[in-house]
Amino acid sequence: MPAVSMTVNGKPVRGDVESRTLLVQFLRETLRLTGTHVGCDTSQCGACVVHVDGVAVKSCSMLAVQADGAEVLTIEGVATGDTLHPMQEAFRQNHGLQCGYCTPGMIMTALDIVRRKGHELDDHTIREELEGNLCRCTGYHNIVKSIAAGARAMASGDPARQAAE
């Protein structure tokens, strides 16, 4: 069985995997980081989005062995201790989730949008960028609002107040 080592949320990890083990399986089943979800398993829904070497990818569409040596960031790695990340806080304040199944993927995608498009995001841009993330509950409206607010809050570095505005 191939051995893999990578950095997940800042910590070095190692494990033995099968060739066919998906990155999302390694995260969930080996590392027990179950915040990353599997919605479709066929690269449609975005529930499994994590960052690999700084960019958003669908972890159901990458083999664990392909992440050997990579830096991986999952939803478990974005908060600082008990303080939510401004983007998480924005989802909380703006009612950006109902059942929460899609939320980890939405937030990891949102952080990637901010990385590429900056902190001032209009609704159209956010909706285009969310092409690959499905939500069966919210109707997207409050997700779009949350991402816009979270992006602004990230610029100011004051999560609670900015996100609540």
Partner: peptide, 9 residues
């Protein structure tokens, strides 16, 4: 093509 995550890979 596809969505941002697909385009990254």
């Amino acid at each position: 093509i596809g969505d941002p995550a697909v385009r990254h890979r």
